[in-house]
Structures are given as C-alpha cells and as structure tokens.
C-alpha cells in the first residue's frame, strides 16, 4: 500500500484537540505516512519553549484524561518528528500576532510557514483539522 500524505491543522488550545492532533501525527508518521503539522492560533502558544501550561479540558473526557498516564501531546508531536520524520511548522501569522520568535520554539520545528505554502503542500493529501 502506498504511504498516504497527511496534513494536520491545529488551531485549538483545548486538551482533547491537542491530544488527538498529536496522536494522529505520531501514529500516522510512525506508520510510514508523510505527515505535516501546521500549528496556529490557540495551539501554538502551548509549544513555546518553557511553557508547560496544561491546556484546559473541553469536556469530561479531557478531565478524565488529565488524571491518567496518557502520553503528553508535546512528547507525541516530538515522537512524530523523531521517530516518524513528521514535519511541524508554526504558522507565520500566529507568530507575528503573538510576537513569537523562531528561537522560542522547539528545535524540531521547521521554519514558519504561511497559509499559501501550506495549502499548496496540502493539495492531494488527507487533511485533518483540530
């Protein structure tokens, strides 16, 4: 079976959505798919270096998950890159609005990306939005 190309857009800052996005990215990448993750809006702030803030749960499941030994979304995204060669890009617009420099983001992130380039790269891929 041909590997799929998977594009993941993450804009939410809720625990459940960040977690599911990270799960799709990590499992997708380690299964041989070409995975690209685009982090923007409320999601991006949770990846700024030194930020270990826990995102708020959206509902009961998020609250339940917080008390369990579930792998964290940050480490799953890192797994996606290190174990599955996923590419993670911060949204250049979100970086401008929040005044975030590239140096403030993890070293495994790719360069800031604009929507035009992301959409071009996402053509003919499976797109997941969280």
């Amino acid at each position: 079976m041909e590997p799929s190309k998977i594009s993941i857009v993450v804009v939410s800052g809720s625990l459940e959505r960040l977690q599911m996005a990270a799960m799709v990215a990590s499992v997708g990448a380690v299964s041989g798919n070409d995975v690209r993750v685009f982090l923007s809006m409320n999601a991006l702030a949770y990846f700024v270096k030194g930020s270990d803030a826990a995102p708020p749960a959206e509902g009961a499941f998020g609250e339940l998950m917080a008390g369990k030994k579930v792998p964290g979304f940050r480490s799953l995204i890192e797994n996606a890159v290190e174990l599955g060669d996923a590419k993670v890009y911060p949204c250049s617009m979100a970086m401008d609005v929040m005044a975030i420099e590239s140096s403030a983001l993890p070293s495994y992130f790719g360069p800031p990306l604009g929507l035009t380039k992301f959409l071009d790269d996402a053509r003919d891929t499976q797109v997941f939005t969280f």
């Binding site: 799960m23 499992v27 380690v30 369990k68 030994k69 579930v70 792998p71 799953l76 797994n79």
Partner: peptide, 18 residues
C-alpha cells in the same frame, strides 16, 4: 504497563530503532 495509547507503541518504536 500503565501507559495509554499510543504510549506503548511509541515506546516499542523507540526501542526498535535501537
């Protein structure tokens, strides 16, 4: 043991690489 999906898979893959 004790870890939830996809934790066990990620641990396995990390060790397979080594």
């Amino acid at each position: 043991r004790g870890s939830f999906c996809p934790g066990p898979l990620m641990e396995l893959i990390g060790w397979i690489k080594l």
